[in-house]
Write a protein that binds this DNA or RNA. Sequence first.
DNA 1: CACGACGGTTCACAGGCGCGAAACAGTCGC
DNA 2: GCGACTGTTTCGCGCCTGTGAACCGTCGTG
Lengths: 191, 191
Amino acid sequence: MRTVAAMVDDSWDRRADVTLVRWPEQETVRTALRAEGRARMLLLSPSTPAPDPDDDLEDWVRMPVAEADLRARVRWLAHRVAQDRPGAGDRGPVLDDDGLIRVGDDWVALPPVEHRLARALVNRLGAVVTRDALATAGWPDSDPGRNALDVHVLRLRRRLAPLALTIHTVRSRGYLLSVDAPDRKVEPAAT
Amino acid sequence: MRTVAAMVDDSWDRRADVTLVRWPEQETVRTALRAEGRARMLLLSPSTPAPDPDDDLEDWVRMPVAEADLRARVRWLAHRVAQDRPGAGDRGPVLDDDGLIRVGDDWVALPPVEHRLARALVNRLGAVVTRDALATAGWPDSDPGRNALDVHVLRLRRRLAPLALTIHTVRSRGYLLSVDAPDRKVEPAAT
DNA sequence: CACGACGGTTCACAGGCGCGAAACAGTCGC
DNA sequence: GCGACTGTTTCGCGCCTGTGAACCGTCGTG
C-alpha cells in the first residue's frame, strides 16, 4: 500500500488522496478505506476477474500495467473525487476552470482578469501575494498600467464580498485572501 | 463506434448508455458525446498517452484489452453514471427522451433543438457549459448561425422559467443551469 | 512640527464587444 | 393553411477593461 499524493498534479488537495491496494490480497485494506470514504486504486493480479462496481471512490487496473497508465488512471480518479465533492463540508473557496468561484453552495462568475487574479490569491490562501505576482498573474503578456491592478483588486474585492471572502492589503507587501469568520452570511447575488 | 448496450447486463438503463470510441482517431466523436453529456469509453491505441481527465462520463482502456476487462470497465462507468444522476439533484430536473423535461410534478415539452440544449445543460447542472459545447450539442451536424444559439437559449430560458429553472450566463464563458431556491434549502444533516 | 513623497482606495468616464431581445421570414407537421 | 419550430437580421443595453484624477493615511525628512 502506497500513497500517491506526489503523483497527482500541482492543484493538489488532500481530498483527492488515492491509495493503491493489491487485490484481492488486501481486501481488508480496501474495506477499511471504503469505510473511511477514501479513494483507492485496486491493482488486480493478472488472472483475477474484475470486482463489481462499488462506490465512486474506487477504480482498478489490471496488472501488469505501464507506470504512465497507472499514473493517468490515478489522475482520473483523483479528478473525479475532486469534482464530485467540491467543498463537502469544507469552507475553502474553489476556483473552477470555467470562470466561477465557489464557496459552499454559493458562487459568482468572474471576468477573465479577475479570474486570474483570484487564482493567484486562492492558491496562496491566507498568505501574502506580491503585487508583482498578481500583476504577472493577471496580465501574463503585458504590464498593467499604474493602477489597473489596484482597480481590479477593488472590483474583485467587491465581487467576493458576498461569498464571505476578504482581500486584505498588507501595505508595501501585497494582498492576502482570507475566509471571513462564519458568524453572519450574506446572500448570493447569482444572476 | 459501437454501442455496448448489449454488453451490459439486464438491469440496463438508457441513461447509462456507454459508447465506445477509438482514440485519438475519433476525437470528434468524443467531443460530440461530451457536448451531449453522454458517457463514452475511449479505446486507446497501444502507444497513445492517456488523455487528461475530462468529466465524470468518461473512462478509457488501453488496447489491446481482454473482453472481460472491457466489459467490467463499461459496467463500472455505467454504474458511476447511474449513481451520479439520482444524487446530482434531489429535486433535480429530469429530461426524458420523449421531449419532456420534468421537475417534481411539473413538466414542459421541449422542441428538438431546445431538448438537446437542455440535455447538455442538465447533464452539467450547476456547472458552466461552453457556448461551443452547446452549439455542438444542439446542432451535431452543422454550425448554428451567429445568433441562433443565443436565440434558442433565450427561448429555452423562457420555457424553463415556470419550472423554477434558471439559465445563468457566465459572460465570455458559457451558460449554467441551476435550480431556483424556493426559500431555504434542506442541508444534508451537517450543521 | 510641517511638509511632502509614497502607497493605496475609490470614483468617473470612455471604448469595445458580448449578449439579450424583438421582429421578421422560411419550413415542417397535422 | 394554421400554428409551432427554426434561423436571421437588427438594435442597443450593460459588462469588462484601462486611464485619469481626487482623496486619505503613513512614513520620512528638513
